[in-house]
Design a protein around this nucleic acid. Structure first.
Length: 804
RNA sequence: GCGGGUGUGGCGGAAUUGGCAGACGCGCUAGAUUCAGGUUCUAGUGGGAAACUAUGCAGGUUCAAAUCCUGUCACCCGCACCA
């Protein structure tokens, strides 16, 4: 009898051996093909690891371990995305420096991850808060600044009243702060912005070049939100000015019966004197400014607005005079902040026109514009539109654009929903933006030789009530000299958002200790691009887009040699609490992976997380399910009691062995870990059914299971006296012909209903099978006295007899 | 509202170039081992006494449908007045 399976003991043992022997250390080796597997590096929160973390990590660890056994040189590394609000908030509350908090959290996370036996190359560990790391984050920012892709703009930003910090649009979820749930209002601030919109087209088009799941591509496309249309200038009556609008329906220009501008539109102040109801307008503006974008666009169902009395526009095609309104359903941040309203063919305009009694002119036939807006763009013939009459919508669009361009009052235009990236945070715990402001020279970059601009040590990192960064209180840090003229200058006190460090970390992994460049050309050329990147659905818009943007920029300036950073991107589902609800502290349903490791072992946790369900779908946690996986590993362990000699697969198990190798190999590639494990469980059941397993079979089995449960398999390998280490064995191959059983049982159906089964040889031809079928007693009885209409034989599957 | 997804035993889930629905695991039932067992082993386990009947619901195509088509309901996720 073998000793008892004791995961506590053997897991620690092997983790120590891996630390010492460093088998997962990745070095450039041109004799092998490289493979770069990547998981999202975590934010080391104070709560420690969550059971959600090991799901993607184990999945990619399986891929990494399998790839190594297939002969690849694998890069798989881990690090810490450690800047961020929770750490800073904790630091403020407990009066501990965020650096100390971070160190503590990282130590905890690292110990937890180590206890799970991942094959990370720990010598490549990185930390975004390390000055040696953020030096290069700052360096990339300066390159962006140099190329004019970073600029400061006065922006109405989302202001979280609780965190006292500006948020990007994307960080506002349902009108509240994504992090703290606090109320978000609009506030105007000077912000550093990154011109991601310059890359909108490339970010969109290059999605065709990469292997992301369709779901992910769709989300990226939606977020970029490309729409084609035209810009059209409307003359403002009695002035030389034009009001420019963006429209996707230039064909409906004859139906434009009024215009609407956003409350922030500059035209209002410009023609202050002409507007007769200026006070009323001011009042409306003030109310609108109190609302967040969310409230303006979400909560207010009923359209509101005020006419700009005294101002009129001229419809450029009909020459008719039309009124101009302001309304908060028009956003300054999209298009030109002004629209032409075609109530007959736009639902929002139609609603607005009905409410304020504005004229509705039908210009596309097909609906009843008194009842509802007719918005079909596929079909429909133009009417009431002079030179467009009788044309199809699509032709009319082209014709109108040509006409506008000829007259010089409009042009074809592509717009994107994607907006520039608000890159400033008024916070302490982030990368300082490496710029100084000089009265004479303006914004001047800190010279490369002086990077990194480090965070000063301070007593107090409380945010200021004015919305300035805590850094602004530190005089001797803020006051500096201008690198250009040597005069007095002040440092930028805003810091970068958390997205910054994670926008290029995958590049740093290729060469993490380089102090001459963010990574050497050699390392980048060898390791990049990332072959397989798995992460959460919650990061498939922002992080993925931002990091693709930075990478494309680095490509354009010649720092990397491929336009896309990730060849393949997949995503995992969430792990939920018992009752299918999100795990959260407030619900009290959080499972701590440490407890599972302590009670059952890391291999059990890993196996369970992979067995829990389809990888890309969310799945509820079940303590019973964990037990089942432990039971499986116990059974695997006890295989040592029934092992016999043999250096090739036994006759009775040969087919099953080849089937399992095939199933596991292919399922791992498709991230169908649950069915791969099921196949291995089934194989183990067979070993017990025949009450023996020979060494050849056991070797193969241990290799197959090793990526999932690396400790127990490695221990058994050693215990059984097999040569070398399991982790550098070769991945087994299957022989296709040997995956097929010689004899199979097929179903016999009468009129599509299974009546009996029959055993046939795989080589039997139809006639032979028919003979066997027809001599079956049950079938004989069933077709007695009936006439056979048709017989269908699907080789090796089914024999169906249609009778009357 | 738009986009994407999911509905299968008591539970997690398998099976989709249409071909024996319920693999694998949990739970449950019975028996064996055990001083004992939250251990292990053996057998059984969708419903129904049975004919039969079962993949959210209603139709359709087919020799054959969880899988294809039409309609419909429910839930989840993302986006949300983007002109």
């Amino acid at each position: 009898m073998a000793r008892e399976y004791n995961p506590k003991e053997i897991e620690k043992k092997w983790q120590d051996i891996w630390d010492k022997e460093e088998p997962f250390k990745a070095e450039i080796d041109r004799s092998k093909p490289k493979y770069y597997t990547l998981v999202e590096f975590p934010y080391p929160s104070g709560e420690g690891l969550h059971v959600g973390h090991p799901r993607p990590y184990t999945a990619m660890d399986i891929i990494a371990r399998k790839r190594r056994m297939e002969g690849y040189n694998v890069l798989f590394a881990m690090g810490w995305d450690a800047f961020g609000l929770p750490t800073e908030n904790y630091a403020i509350k407990n009066k501990i420096h965020p650096k100390i908090v971070t160190e503590k959290n990282v130590a905890r996370f690292k110990a937890q991850l180590k206890s799970l036996g991942y094959s990370f190359d720990w010598s490549r560990e990185i930390n975004t808060t390390d000055p040696e790391y953020y030096k290069w984050t700052q360096w990339i920012f300066l390159k962006l600044f140099e190329k004019g892709l970073a600029y400061k703009a006065e922006m109405p930003i989302n202001w979280c009243t609780q965190c006292k910090v500006g948020l990007a649009n994307e960080e506002v979820v349902n009108g509240v702060c994504e992090r703290c749930g606090g109320q978000v209002v609009r506030k105007v601030k000077k912000q550093w912005m990154l011109k991601i919109t310059d890359y909108a087209e490339k970010l969109l088009n290059d999605l065709d070049k990469v292997d992301y799941t369709e779901k992910i591509k769709t989300q990226q496309r939606n977020w970029i939100g490309r729409s084609e249309g035209a810009e059209v200038d409307f003359k403002i009556k009695g002035t030389d000015e034009c009001l420019r609008v963006f429209t996707t329906r230039p064909d409906t220009l004859f139906g434009a019966t009024y215009m609407v501008v956003s409350p922030e539109h500059p035209i209002i102040d410009k023609y202050k004197d002409k507007i007769k109801n200026y006070e009323e307008i001011q009042k409306y503006k003030q109310e609108a400014s109190k609302k967040s974008d969310f409230e303006r666009t979400e909560l207010v169902k009923e359209k509101t607005g005020v006419e700009l009395k005294g101002l009129k526009a001229i419809n450029p095609v009909s020459q008719k005079e039309i009124p101009i309104w302001i309304s908060d359903y028009v956003l300054m941040s999209y298009g030109t902040g002004a629209i032409m309203a075609v109530p007959a063919h736009d639902e929002r305009d139609w609603e607005f026109a009905k409410k304020f009694n504005l004229p509705i002119i039908e210009v596309v036939k097909g609906g009843n514009v008194n009842e509802a807006a007719f918005t079909d763009t596929e079909s429909g013939i133009l009417v009431n539109s002079d030179f467009l009459n009788g044309m199809e919508v699509s032709d009319a669009k082209k014709k109108m654009i040509a006409w506008l361009e000829e007259k010089g009052i409009g042009k074809k235009k592509v717009n994107y929903k994607l907006r520039d990236w608000v890159f400033s945070r008024q916070r302490y715990w982030g990368e300082p933006i490496p710029l100084v402001y000089c009265e004479k020279c303006g914004w001047v970059p800190v010279p490369e030789s002086e990077l990194p601009v480090t965070l000063p040590d301070v007593e107090n990192y409380m945010p200021t009530d004015t919305g300035e960064s805590p850094l602004s209180n530190i005089k001797d840090w803020v006051e500096t000299t201008c690198p250009k003229c040597g005069g007095k200058a002040t440092r930028e006190t805003d810091t970068m958002p958390q997205w910054a460090g994670s926008s290029w970390y995958f590049l740093r992994f290729t060469d993490p200790h380089n102090n001459k460049a963010f990574a050497s050309k050699e390392a980048i050329d060898y390791w990049m691009p990332v072959d397989w990147y798995n992460g959460g659905m919650e990061h498939t818009t922002l992080h993925l887009l931002y990091s693709r943007f930075w990478h494309k920029f680095l490509y354009d300036i010649g720092c990397v040699s491929m336009p896309e950073p990730y060849v393949k991107r997949t995503s995992h589902g969430m792990i939920l609490g018992k009752n299918n609800e999100k795990m959260s502290k407030s619900r009290g349903n959080v499972i701590n992976p440490d407890d599972i490791v302590n009670e059952f072992g890391a291999d059990t946790l890993r196996t369970y997380e992979m067995f829990i369900g389809a990888f890309d779908q969310s799945a509820p946690w079940s303590q019973q399910g964990v037990k089942g996986c432990r039971r499986f590993l116990d059974r695997v362990w006890r295989l040592m009691d029934i092992v016999v000699d043999g250096d090739s697969y036994s006759n009775e198990l040969e087919t099953k062995m080849h089937q399992t190798i095939k199933k596991v190999s292919l399922d791992f590639e498709q991230m169908k870990f649950n069915t791969a494990i099921a196949a291995m469980m089934s194989l183990v059941n067979d070993f017990y059914a025949v009450q023996k397993i020979n060494k050849a079979e056991l070797k193969t089995f241990l290799i197959l299971l090793n990526p999932v449960a690396p400790h127990i398999t490695e221990e058994m390998w050693q215990e059984l006296g097999f040569e070398g280490r399991l982790y550098n064995q070769k991945w087994p191959k299957w022989i296709e012909e040997k995956t097929v059983e010689n004899t199979v049982e097929i179903a016999i159906q009468i009129n599509g209903k299974v009546r009996s089964t029959v055993s046939i040889s795989i080589d039997d031809d139809k006639a032979t099978v028919k003979e066997k079928v027809m001599s079956n007693e049950v079938i004989k009885k069933n077709i007695e006295g009936k006439s056979i209409v048709k017989e269908i034989y699907i080789p090796g599957k089914i024999y169906n007899i249609v009778v009357k």
